[in-house]
Each structure stands twice: as structure tokens, then as C-alpha cells.
């Protein structure tokens, strides 16, 4: 499998990258880790005229916790994220996601920004970002804007980012006491895209009641979605399998899977329900164990 002809530039700054995107709008495609894009180019399913490689743009790979957010640079690799001390200490749900994407080589090079911008309907990050109510930081020549994850994933391989913008980072609300997250992915074998994946975040108050939650689901719709009905079902409930099963049913009811090699429609729906329960169990354990 051989790529079609293409051109390649490696801008040294974000401004230069943005200028190229404007000058070559319609032809230019951003290249980050390449582990989603290059296979499509080899299969000639994507044939961009110009690849704009972000590898020399400085400052896009930092991972840091601020007063109100965990900020992950767009060019942080899945492995960078998985091995980050702050994430290992405080964000086990993110460790779940980052450790289960593709295979070790993919995680060495694939980046969160590239994966989020690519918006494969079965990719893992969107589920978590939706559950966590993260925002996606997009920079254009006119400046920076933050798009809530819940408005970002528009359709299959389609996001709210403009072709002249660069996705520069992800902001995830800083974890507070009583909050826990988890991601559960069902795959046919290790390294596969998700048959279904569910990320769950719960906030449990001192009295043991769920006072907030986020459920993000991938692999079972044209685009990953936030299972808001499941979130509603959990509000004010005591954590436990009854509440989790109700949430799972609600999350499954919102799915719109298609029957394919990964399974029939009713199986995928049932898996959404099952994975929601499992993710909620684990998120709850983590929430109860986390005092800030």
C-alpha cells in the first residue's frame, strides 16, 4: 500500500503552521503522531495534497495541573499521558484510556490531539472527554477558543474545529475530592478499536450520594456521545448496582449502533449497558477513595 503523491512541510512555530493552513486551505492536513492518518493515506482513503507536520512546533506537549484543570498538550502521546506522574497519581480513569489505545508503538507516537481531531467514531479519548466535560482548545490566526467536548464531536470523522485551526490542547476539570473516573473498553483482541467503550465519572458527596456524573460512550454511534439520560438517572442516587444498571440501560437506549463484524445491534446495546455498570463500579471505588 503506497501513498499518493503529497507535499510535506514542518513549520517551526504555531504561527507558521496557522499561516500555512490559511494559505493552503482545502489542501492542507495537519499531521501529529500519524498513526491514524498515515494508514488512511497508505490505503488512499485520504489523499491530502499537503501534510503540515506539527512535530517541531514547540510547547504543545506539556501535561500540567492548574488550579482548576488538568491541561494536556495536543502533542502529548498516549504514552506520555499514561506515564505522567500527575495523571498516575490522580487520574486513574485517564490511565485506563491511555493504556488501552492501540498497541505500545501506537501509544509511543499517537497523540491525544491527533486522535481527538481525527474523531474516529470508535476512538477512546472522546468517551472520556465527554464524560469529564473537558474542553478542546483550538487556535486560529484570530486567537484561541475553547470548545466543550460535548459540542466538539459532530459526526463520523467530523468535529467542530475549523480547517484553519490547530487543536492545541485539552482541558479536563481538575479532580476534586469524592470524584472518580474509569474507562471500560470491549475489544475483539488487544489493540482493536472498541466494539463499545464507556467512560464514567462520578462525584459522591460526604453523605454517599451521587451528586454529579458524566458518561461518555464510543463505538456505538456515528460519533461518540454523552449519555445524558444515564447521568440524569444517577443524580441523587446512592451508588450501587441498581442505580448503575438503570444508568446502563439509559446509556444503551441512546446508542445507535450498526450491525457489523463487531456484532449485531442488540449485542452492542447490551454491551453499552454492561460496560456502563462496570465503569461506574470502578469509578465509584475510586471516588470513595479519593479525598482530594
Amino acid at each position: 500500500m503506497i501513498p499518493a503523491q503529497l507535499d510535506y512541510v514542518r513549520p517551526a512555530s504555531l504561527d507558521e503552521a496557522l499561516r500555512i493552513l490559511v494559505d493552503r486551505e482545502g489542501e492542507a492536513k495537519l499531521l501529529s503522531g500519524g498513526y491514524s492518518l498515515i494508514p488512511l493515506i497508505k490505503l488512499r482513503l485520504a489523499q491530502p495534497a499537503l501534510l503540515v507536520d506539527l512535530q517541531s512546533v514547540p510547547g504543545l506537549d506539556a501535561i500540567a495541573e492548574t488550579d482548576d484543570a488538568l491541561v494536556i498538550g495536543a502533542r502529548a502521546t498516549h504514552r506520555d499521558i499514561h506515564e505522567s506522574a500527575v495523571i498516575r497519581d490522580r487520574y486513574p480513569g485517564i490511565v485506563d484510556v491511555a493504556g488501552g489505545i492501540g498497541d505500545p508503538q501506537v501509544r509511543n507516537w499517537g497523540t491525544i490531539g491527533g486522535s481527538v481531531a481525527h474523531a474516529d467514531p470508535a476512538s477512546d479519548w472522546p468517551a472520556f472527554l465527554l464524560a469529564a466535560n473537558a474542553t478542546i482548545v483550538c487556535r486560529g490566526q484570530g486567537g484561541e477558543r475553547e470548545v466543550p467536548a460535548r459540542h466538539f464531536f459532530v459526526d463520523t470523522f467530523t468535529t467542530a474545529i475549523e480547517p484553519t485551526e490547530v487543536l492545541t490542547g485539552i482541558r479536563i476539570p481538575r479532580r476534586a475530592a469524592g470524584v472518580g473516573g474509569a474507562y471500560q473498553k470491549l475489544e475483539r483482541k488487544v489493540g482493536d478499536f472498541a466494539t463499545a467503550g464507556v467512560a464514567a465519572i462520578v462525584r459522591i458527596d460526604a453523605g454517599g450520594t451521587i451528586v454529579g456524573s458524566g458518561i461518555g460512550v464510543t463505538g456505538v454511534s456515528a460519533s461518540p456521545y454523552a449519555a445524558v439520560d444515564a447521568e440524569s438517572a444517577l443524580a441523587g442516587k446512592r451508588p450501587g448496582d441498581d442505580a448503575f444498571r438503570a444508568a446502563g440501560q439509559a446509556a444503551a437506549a441512546m446508542s445507535q449502533p450498526v450491525s457489523d463484524v463487531r456484532g449485531p445491534v442488540d449485542y452492542k446495546r447490551a454491551m453499552v449497558a454492561e460496560l456502563t455498570v462496570r465503569a461506574l463500579r470502578r469509578a465509584t471505588e475510586r471516588a470513595l477513595a479519593f479525598n482530594g
Binding site: Y8, G34, Y35, I38, K42, L51, P104, Q105, N108, W109
Partner: peptide, 8 residues
């Protein structure tokens, strides 16, 4: 480690 078939 990288998959050199997926890198230009």
C-alpha cells in the same frame, strides 16, 4: 519504538 511503515 515505531512502526516504520506508518512513518514518512
Amino acid at each position: 519504538s515505531a512502526k516504520s511503515c506508518t512513518v514518512l
